[in-house]
Design a protein around this nucleic acid. Structure first.
Lengths: 104, 104
DNA sequence: CAAACATATCAATAATTGTTCATATGTATG
DNA sequence: CATACATATGAACAATTATTGATATGTTTG
């Protein structure tokens, strides 16, 4: 079915932008931390030992790319992965990387 | 089945490294160009309008991460994706990104 | 509405990384 | 073995980006 043609240069740039955002250890840790349940900014910062400012900056980038989504609940804002696509993608990639040794 | 635990900080770094390499438009274009058939360095450079040096530098990084693999054939070296994992991953991600609008 | 708390933003710095140009290595051919 | 060709490497530069510290915005509670 849907065989993938070589993406246009524009598409490639958009795709690369997503990869780029996932390509930072701090951001990846934040994403995995929010994978199972929504987490407040403060919780993320404390649990991952990052400054509140840094977490906020990264969340902004992730929000901008619609990789995460935040819900305000009183004073706190709880972030979670934006949708199932994103979480599947993360999990898949993690598996891909674990299974490093290929069949070739 | 295999539910994914939160990766260790080390694993996260390794995973991020892979994402990071995919997160550059030039490298992604090179990868997609080599997706269907092996391509020589010169062919890549000409077809994608990049300097030979630049292509070679990027190929080195991709080789280092075992994302591509090169076969010498006389004077030329033909690069292709390292294995099916890598190509599947690329195609999957491209689909994920195309289907941007989630079910949430 | 002031004080306390949680998150976001701004400006500046430090570190990383993509790109270029010059040159080296390796390979075939006359 | 010299020349031409294809790719790789090294040093330097330019640009991008992660991180920090200080401060602003927004939200609740007394």
């Amino acid at each position: 079915m849907n065989k993938l043609a070589i993406p246009s240069q524009l598409d490639t740039t958009i795709l690369a932008e997503t990869f780029r955002l996932l390509g930072d250890p701090t951001r990846l840790r934040i994403l995995f931390f929010c994978l199972d349940e929504p987490r407040s900014v403060g919780d993320i910062a404390t649990s991952l030992d990052l400054s509140q400012s840094l977490v906020s900056h990264h969340l902004r980038l992730l929000r901008g790319a619609r990789l995460v989504r935040g819900n305000r609940q009183a004073k706190q804002i709880f972030y979670e992965l934006a949708d199932k696509h994103v979480s599947d993608m993360l999990v898949d990639m993690a598996h891909h990387v674990c299974e490093e040794s290929g069949e070739d």
